[in-house]
Write a protein that binds this DNA or RNA. Structure first.
Length: 753
DNA sequence: GAGTTTGAAACT
DNA sequence: CAGTTTCAAACTC
């Protein structure tokens, strides 16, 4: 594929960076499909467009998102979940820095053997020269192949001006003064891998001298892992909004503003992605997107990520409404990110105290990456193979050209927007009028209509909590209640901002993860369930797990079910029948013994497992009815997703078996068991949830709880002999034991035994 | 729409 | 920290 010709940059625009475009990247096809001139526009006024194979690329995410780089994993262009990642590619020989638009196909990968992750990281942590010198500019490299990062050279600027739907600047981050929030966001994006949408593109400084403003190195580096994604693009319902006053946007862009604007010369359709961590509006036309990307619309990866679109919320589909964008994910990122070396506590503090998302004076980024409780219902849809656009049609009022109000009403909140609205609604709620009942009824009806399946756009109906407790879904999502809520005595509005902030702080101080997303994708926790082809909603897991007793995890009472995810080891549910994947189903020794007695026999494997457990118990953990071992019916090779064993023995080789899971057509059914057949009896194994597994005891999960979702054993012995308090106490401790950050492949060794 | 069920959150 | 109570959403009729 030939590189597209670069048209001359518009007059007055500074010379821009050269850009490399990976020719086998979907985004390249995408761009090319738009227009012959789209690529250069996408890349700003890049005058040097270099093509190279994506196989030459090392996704920045592999460096910055996680230490869990799996060098064995190959970079596979063209896989179904090949979302596109904007990254700073590095040539395999590490001799040049390049800005590349590459495809990121799932888990972080290292495609090159010539450059270690640390080397990449080192390089990427440096200022990256831009300008015409950037590509293949050997003169900027010393003899060692290292890049000369001249301080006065242009640097990549990845955040950009944020436009509203009218193309008006909402925020320009091109200048200094990036605050902590920005870093937080960057962390989030980077950490969550899917944080940034296609809207995050290379943007360039509009400064006349052509020198890019410098970014914090870590920020810059992390931003390099932004993805180009097509998520919201395809949500039809946003199109009218998104296309509002495009001329302004276009003009602004062509005037040299940051951001990216893709224009099709053929029919004047356009795709505009103003990229910024601070949020972005999107103007886009789904029809302009090539099949390779469109086809991913319904992929779960996209589906999930679609909810993570950083945005001011104004350009998002109402299908996104609800919690997807409502729950602040700072906390999670605080847990997971350690990329820039910034103090976690600082971040957290900022999160708690700053309440940035509430204050309109702050950066208007409220839709944050991650999956919160509220997006669960939408996730459920995803699980049901219901793409956004397949949602039931909304009443006409929702199909009308969106306004700020309607946007907020659909549940997509920019806090700013939200705030504006809540001033109105708060008074309504706090000072009920005579029409309150009618109003409530109307709200309910409207909400019902809006919800479609009844769950997409949740609003609270609190009566006693004043919407200041986690009972309140709005409060839990860190958003103000809106006019759609039918709550009574609501204080969760902008009018009571200080109160809300205070309560939030208190709540968070009591439980730092109170506002954390409740669902984490598998890739967030270390590709638990194979590659990204399994990144379905069901391969996500509810972090805290459910505690269902009667619903069998088959109703929305169950948070896992509601989230559309399978139950996990974190769950303490009984009689789990979660259709998205059953919980750990285990046999306790006690039960097994009982069964064995009743049978009068015990299988060889059972005996072996039992013996092993006894050994383990004797060596560390006292015997307990909660000690576990598993059904003997498991396929040994399913241990491909084993937790790192706490045994000294190395994990069973999984090389030959991992494909089974990866290729599983039923990733939702992934589950975890303890296998007696493994070298270590405590190694959980992923099994197909359809397996005929008998749950013998719900109490047996205690031991399991000391295992993090990313298959990490979490120091069960740290608390001394006996049962881990983690197991008993449930949520909080379990959460603390769950590193959202993906685990290292070999981190079992780092775990205390 | 009222009443019931359910499980998370809050409380003791 | 285990047990209980409160709460609001989900569910049923």
């Amino acid at each position: 594929m030939d590189p597209p010709e670069s048209p001359p940059a518009p007059a007055g625009r500074p010379p821009s960076a050269a850009v490399s475009l990976y020719e086998d990247s979907p985004v390249f096809d995408f761009i090319n499909s738009l227009s012959p001139i789209a690529t250069p526009k996408l890349l700003g006024s890049a005058q040097n467009v270099q093509l190279f194979k994506s196989s030459d690329l090392v996704p920045a995410s592999s460096i910055f998102t996680s230490p869990q780089v799996n060098p064995q994993k190959e970079y596979k262009p063209g896989t179904r979940d090949g979302y596109v990642q904007l990254s700073q590619g590095l040539s395999p020989n590490c001799q040049t820095n390049q800005i590349g638009i590459s495809s990121c196909y799932g888990s972080p990968t290292i495609a090159s053997e010539k450059c270690s992750p640390s080397e990449y990281a080192t390089i990427l942590s440096q200022p990256i020269p831009l300008g015409s010198e950037i590509l293949g500019d050997a003169k900027k490299q010393d003899t060692d192949g290292k890049v000369d990062h001249s301080p006065d050279m242009g640097q990549i600027k990845l955040s950009s001006t944020c436009y509203d739907q009218n193309g008006v600047d909402q925020l320009d981050s091109s200048t200094s003064g990036r605050n902590v929030q920005e870093n937080e966001l960057t962390k989030q994006y980077n950490d969550d891998q899917a944080a940034c949408s296609l809207s995050h593109l290379i943007s360039r400084s509009g400064t006349g001298d052509g020198v890019m403003s410098k970014l914090d190195l870590s920020l810059e580096a992390q931003q390099l892992s932004w993805k180009l994604r097509s998520d919201v693009i395809f949500s039809k319902s946003i199109m009218p909004m998104a296309q509002g006053n495009l001329e302004d946007s276009r003009r602004k862009l062509l005037d040299g503003s940051t951001g990216c604007y893709i224009q099709s010369a053929a029919d004047d359709t356009h795709v505009y992605y103003a990229g910024a961590a601070e949020g972005a509006a999107t103007n886009h036309d789904p029809q302009m997107l090539p099949g390779v990307i469109q086809s991913q619309l319904v992929s779960n990866e996209y589906f999930f990520d679609a909810f993570k679109v950083p945005s001011d919320g104004m350009a998002l589909s109402e299908h996104h409404c609800g919690g997807m964008n409502r729950r602040s994910l700072f906390n999670e990122k605080v847990q997971t990110s350690d990329l820039s070396g910034q103090s976690v506590s600082n971040l957290h503090h900022t999160n708690i105290c700053g309440d940035n998302y509430l204050k309109p004076s702050r950066s208007p980024v409220y839709a944050l990456p991650g999956i919160g409780l509220h997006l669960n219902s939408v996730v459920s849809n995803a699980s049901n193979n219901m793409p956004f656009t397949s949602n039931p049609p909304l009443p006409p009022e929702h199909n009308s050209p969106p306004t700020i109000v309607s946007c907020s009403e659909t549940g997509l909140y920019s806090s700013e927007v939200n705030t504006l609205i809540h001033d109105d609604h708060s008074s309504q709620k706090t000072m009920p009028s005579a029409d309150e009942s009618c109003q409530e009824s109307y709200k309910k009806k409207r909400r019902k209509l809006q919800n479609g399946d009844g769950g997409s756009c949740k609003r609270c109906s609190c009566k006693k909590s004043k919407c200041l407790k986690l009972y309140c879904t709005c409060f839990a999502a860190k958003v103000y209640c809106s006019g759609l809520c039918s709550c009574q005595g609501c204080l969760n509005n902008h009018t009571h901002e200080e109160t809300v902030s205070c309560i939030r702080k208190r709540t968070e101080s009591l439980n730092p993860l109170a506002f954390a997303p409740t669902v984490t994708r598998a890739c967030d926790s270390g590709s638990d369930f194979g590659d990204d082809s399994n990144n379905t909603p069901a391969s996500a897991r509810h972090k805290r797990g459910c505690n269902c007793r009667k619903s069998s995890c088959l109703k929305k009472y169950c948070e896992c079910f509601q989230s559309g995810v399978g139950c996990s080891m974190s769950c303490r549910c009984a009689s789990c029948k979660n259709s998205f994947g059953q919980r750990v189903l285990l046999l306790t020794t006690e039960k097994m013994e009982k069964e064995a007695k009743s049978k009068g026999t015990r299988s060889k494997e059972e005996k072996l497992a039992f013996d092993k457990q006894v050994v383990i118990s004797q060596s560390g953990d006292p015997p307990s009815t909660e000690d576990l071992f598993a059904t003997p019916s498991l396929e040994p090779c399913r241990s491909s997703n084993l937790l790192p064993s706490t045994c000294s023995e190395p994990p069973v080789s999984t090389a030959g078996c991992s494909s089974q899971l990866r290729n599983s057509q039923s990733p939702m059914k992934a589950d975890v068991l303890l296998s007696p057949s493994e070298t270590c009896a405590m190694e959980p194994i992923l099994v197909d949830g359809l397996s005929n597994i008998q749950e013998v005891s719900s109490s047996c999960t205690t031991r399991v709880k000391v295992v993090s979702p990313n298959k990490k054993r979490v120091s069960p012995l740290q608390t001394g002999p006996g049962l881990s308090p983690i197991g008993r106490s449930g949520r909080k401790l379990v959460l603390k034991s769950i590193p959202s950050f993906p685990s290292l492949t070999g981190d079992a060794d780092s775990e205390p035994h």
